[in-house]
Design a binder for these strands. Structure first.
Lengths: 337, 337
DNA sequence: TTGTATGCGTTATCAG
DNA sequence: CTGATAACGCATACAA
């Protein structure tokens, strides 16, 4: 019960395989009548062309590869979704792989992508900015366009669109000062290039807004218990702390919960800011002020660029999408105190 | 700068292409020495086999297809993640497509999957239980194993593992009664087979726990504003309502926010239950009692089944994963009132 | 142990 | 307008 081939169609229609091929691909130079006949046979036999064979002869897989560390990190799924939809529209399939955070594994996945002869690749996340990944791209994907969402690698075939994390977080500090907070801290879940930029932005802001202060920065881990623990420790060891910027909304949400359970008022006693402006920011109580780093716009830009490259248009190699600070209740207090 | 082929390797190593092929595939009958020489050339030329060509000759794409309505619905990404990882381990690539909710589109995507000659398919979500999808499977994927996560279609090559939504929601009603709530309502975001089962479970529960009561059920839409509106309307039109079960956690979270803004106490005046036991349930304030329908376990079971089928083992055609009710603060009141 | 020839399903290049 | 024929890159039966 294998799939029917153009030869069987050809036989059924009393023509040659080439004619069938021409009909399938809407090529000119086929008599109306025969075309109609072939079309009928195609329909009747439920023919659907073998893309594998097509890919072989056309030297084109009509597939793009999407690499992501872990697609369960929700703030990236919007991007994948968008990219998949756009490329689907153009007849491309999307091979999606979760690489994890180990660079050697990633190199392996990049090789796999090459074996599938993908025509372009999207790497999602700043953590793909590493030497091993760079080497792997040079070795396995040197000729196809590669775009990094929220990152950049300096190679001829690599494009990047990055978020304005540093500037965005710096503006978070501005906001905190405007609201009367005096002792801000910054907490990241893990060490990533992206989080590093956020830390830098935070330090920039603190040094500018509170020149006498040493920026207080911590790395917590991603588990709920770790974050709760870190928050508790933070307020024990630095009781003067009156505001925290978190590298991701969920962390901020957990912080709000934790403080609430300790009887600490947000935003009255402590101001909290998250990053990504995700759904969680809306449903927090108090709702969460969050830095929207425009991850979706970023993916949109990435997809557009990639499509442009594939269609031979000139494309900016590296660009930045500006972020936007969305104020909500978690920083809403008078600048009085 | 095309990719190097086995012929070029053959030439470089001074052997024939078939020998190279044998080495690559670790087939027996190659002299140690030549094998070593070939291996060196392979390494040196950065050879990586063209999976497209392999697929053509082997009649196997080494790809599975994953169809999902919208991967932004977070409670499904865990499943995709797991499935991708398991199949990756076996050397399979995952072609992932977001189909949307239109059945005709889905049929189209199923055809696309066939063109790529995927070796198995995973359909994620109860909404794939439709006649058009069934027809499409019969027509385009009649011979490869297809598994539906949280659904089932009666076809020889289709397997299904479903969640115990009906029983689970019925137990939610039990819990509410035990906690002293008397006027429960149920709200779903949209009409899906899965939500339908939940509604039925709710009705079962109400009829058993409160025989004199007519079950109160509403469909709200998925947007935040729609849900807020529905909640407000619910308590206007049915002021006696003292508890609500929502088809998804985020809806419940929004409800908690909305009630809080109206000065209605949860769980004191109103009990709230969500479904999926997602991250949101933990960070709600009050934290959210939620029915864990074991979506991850469900995906695990689905992946296992699919792998078993592919490896020729016998597999249960249809199975159910039991749900688990996780009590948190949003229903935590004494049964007094 | 190795090489030759053939085919996988399709498209493209020629002739006719 | 249509039909042979040769690729595409690899694997395999068969010969040597």
């Amino acid at each position: 019960m294998k799939n029917v081939t153009i030869y069987e169609i050809a036989e059924a229609a009393g023509v040659s395989a080439s004619t069938v091929s021409r009909v399938i691909n809407n090529k000119p130079g086929v008599k109306k009548a025969t075309k109609k006949r072939v079309l009928e046979c195609l329909e009747e036999h439920h023919f659907s062309p073998n893309e594998t064979a097509r890919g072989l002869v056309n030297q084109s897989s009509k597939m793009i590869g999407i690499l992501i560390s872990d697609m369960r990190t929700t703030h990236h799924t919007d991007g994948i979704y968008y990219i998949q939809r756009e490329f689907s529209r153009l007849g491309y399939g999307c091979l999606i792989m979760n690489t994890g955070y180990d660079d050697a594994d990633r190199a392996h996945y990049i090789q796999l992508m090459n074996q599938r002869r993908i025509e372009a690749a999207v790497l999602i996340g700043s953590t793909f900015q590493s030497d091993l990944v760079k080497d792997a791209i040079e070795q396995y994907l040197p000729k196809i366009p590669v775009i990094i969402a929220n990152g950049y690698i300096d190679l001829p075939n690599v494009y990047g669109v990055i978020a304005d994390e540093r500037g965005g977080v710096e503006r978070c500090v501005d906001l905190l000062r405007r609201k009367g907070y005096r002792y801000p801290a910054f907490a990241a879940n893990r060490e990533t290039p992206s989080n590093h930029l956020k830390m830098q932005g935070f330090c920039d802001g603190v040094r500018r807004c509170f020149p006498d202060r040493e920026p207080l920065v911590l790395v917590t881990g991603s588990e709920q218990a770790e974050i709760e623990g870190a928050v508790n420790r933070l307020f024990e060891e630095h009781p003067q702390t009156d505001s925290v910027v978190f590298s991701e909304d969920p962390m901020a949400a957990i912080c709000i919960r934790t403080l609430h359970d300790c009887g600490i008022d947000v935003p009255g006693q402590v101001g909290v800011i998250g990053i990504n402006n995700s759904f969680i920011a809306e449903i927090c109580n108090p709702s969460l002020t969050s830095l929207d780093n425009m991850l979706l716009d970023l993916s949109v830009a990435a997809a557009r660029s990639l499509i442009d490259v594939l269609q031979g248009r000139h494309v900016v190699k590296k660009m930045m999408v500006y972020s936007r600070l969305v104020e909500r209740e978690s920083t809403q207090r008078d600048a009085s105190e």
